[in-house]
């Protein structure tokens, strides 16, 4: 963009705020993804893929033979006694509760209540 014109302009604050908020949300999604998928897969599966290629070389390299993570059904517990299997409780229910907390933090703290402007049609109607 022409530097002369650029000096007369500033970055749209809605664009800037929205981008910042989007980055935070996507980071939270990545954390949830890494935690929930790895926790549930490693702690809640009776049988794991025998072929390392099935999970990708990186996973096989990091964790070794996945059969060592095969879950023994008799080791099942119910945290808090509410009947939810332990791997679902710690892998899904608990992070779900944390995500609800995160959403409230996002809404009440991070989110900027920007003025969104009006559409050309609304402006015309207002002028009339």
């Amino acid at each position: 963009m022409d530097p002369q014109i650029e000096s007369e302009l500033e970055e749209d604050p809605i664009f800037r705020n929205s981008l910042r908020e989007a980055r935070v949300i996507l980071s939270a999604w990545v954390l949830c993804f890494l935690y929930t998928v790895s926790y549930c897969y490693l702690n809640g599966y009776l049988v794991h893929e025998p072929n390392p290629a099935a999970t990708g070389p990186a996973v096989a390299h990091l964790l070794g033979p996945l059969q060592s993570f095969d879950r023994d059904p008799d080791s099942l517990t119910y945290p808090l006694g509410i009947g939810i299997p332990d791997w679902i409780f710690y892998g899904v229910v608990l992070p779900w509760m944390i995500c609800i907390g995160f959403s409230f933090w996002y809404g009440l703290v991070l989110f900027k209540e920007d003025e969104l402007g009006s559409s050309p049609q609304e402006s015309t109607e207002a002028d009339e």
Binding site: N17, I25, W29, C32, T36, Y106
Partner: peptide
């Protein structure tokens, strides 16, 4: 429950990432 687990963060993702900005661009 594992299959649907991503819904823990669906509302904030689907509405928060693009909502405000898309609304603004559409108004323009």
């Amino acid at each position: 429950a594992f299959w649907i687990a991503s819904y823990m963060i669906v509302p904030v993702c689907t509405m928060g990432v693009m909502g405000k900005r898309l609304n603004q661009v559409a108004r323009k």
